[in-house]
């Protein structure tokens, strides 16, 4: 990914002062990308009048770090066979993917606000035929993980050293096929595969543990033969160093259990499953969220004026 953040073009792209480009600080840049991502996804979900803000906000720091420092893919290299792959297995968090992709120039920032609209390639779940930089179509939980495993197999068979990353939701752990894939990946010693779990502890209707308990999660993945890392999914330096440790793990796939907060960054959403589902944000709610994310009045107007 580009080391230098994109140059600020209009007010809504970033609200804070741009970091000094001559002395790039990757952690600062990732934090800035994450801030942009949160603002962008709130704006796109508001404009769409539907979407899943809670689980989109919880994975913003993970995706910002992944795209900001880990993946070797650029807008110019989306068809390069040597590129790393990222699969958003929790496809409903695509506003986060669209936002971080826009930040890095894979798509247009303004166009990607056009979420869930007829004629827009930014569907409610990502589709590879609409957006060529999306690695596969997702939106049915569990499948992206299996597809990512197949990619890891295909790369290894072709002696391509690229890595495959996939982000799963915690509710997704309840899909049986996840464990088929977990078992098969470990059996085939796919050390080029890294699964990240956005462990925000909540799913559509309630807490994971109320719906169908998934704990102890780390024990489960270890028992399935994976190298497991448990981290704070909002701590960018920790995410960075864990990606490095996962990339140097040999002989087995890696699972990063990222402890996160659902709705992270928007206080009234934090820790509430109510903001998981496809919800409609009122103008006031969107405005409050953008204020909490540090937007100025001018920036809020630009984001929310349709």
């Amino acid at each position: 990914m580009p080391i230098c953040a994109p140059v600020k073009e209009t007010a809504f792209e970033t609200a804070t002062a741009h970091p000094v480009v001559s002395a790039p600080d990757i952690e600062v840049q990732i934090a800035e990308a994450a801030r942009f991502t949160r603002r962008h996804l709130i704006a796109s979900i508001y404009r769409a009048t539907s979407g899943h803000p809670g689980g989109a906000l919880s994975c913003a720091d993970i995706l910002a770090t992944l795209f900001g420092a880990e993946l070797n893919v650029w807008p110019s290299s989306v068809n390069d066979p040597q590129r790393d792959r990222f699969v958003l297995s929790k496809g409903h968090a695509c506003p986060t993917l669209y936002a971080i992709a826009a930040w890095h120039g894979f798509c247009d920032k303004k166009e990607s606000l056009n979420l869930r609209k007829l004629g827009s390639p930014f569907q409610g779940h990502p589709h590879v035929k609409d957006l060529p930089w999306v690695e596969t179509s997702t939106g049915s939980l569990g499948q992206g993980f299996s597809v990512a495993m197949g990619m890891a197999m295909g790369l290894r068979m072709q002696k391509i050293r690229a890595r495959v990353y996939t982000l799963l939701g915690d509710g997704e752990m309840q899909e049986g096929s996840v464990w088929e894939t977990a078992m098969c990946s470990a059996h085939h010693k796919l050390d080029n595969l890294c699964a990240i779990i956005d462990y925000n502890k909540m799913q559509s209707d309630a807490l994971n543990e109320e719906i169908c308990g998934i704990a102890p999660l780390a024990d489960k993945w270890r028992a399935f033969g994976w190298e497991v890392f448990e981290i704070d999914g909002h701590d960018i330096p920790q995410i960075l160093s864990t990606f490095h440790r996962a990339a140097t793990t040999r002989g087995k796939p890696s699972c990063i259990i990222a402890n996160t907060i659902k709705g992270k960054g928007v206080p009234y959403m934090e820790g509430s499953p109510a903001w998981h589902g496809s919800v409609k944000l009122s103008h006031e709610q969107a405005e409050t969220a953008l204020q909490a994310l540090g937007c100025t009045a001018e920036e809020i107007k630009e984001f929310l004026d349709v």
């Binding site: 299996s146 597809v147 495993m149 295909g154 072709q158």
Partner: peptide, 24 residues
């Protein structure tokens, strides 16, 4: 060129899609 997926057809079919995505 033979991948044993075990008795897990859901994973196998989606994994095939991933393999195809890499040109196989």
């Amino acid at each position: 060129k033979f991948i044993q997926c075990g008795i897990a057809e859901q994973n196998m079919v989606a994994a095939a899609a991933g393999l195809a995505a890499t040109g196989m």
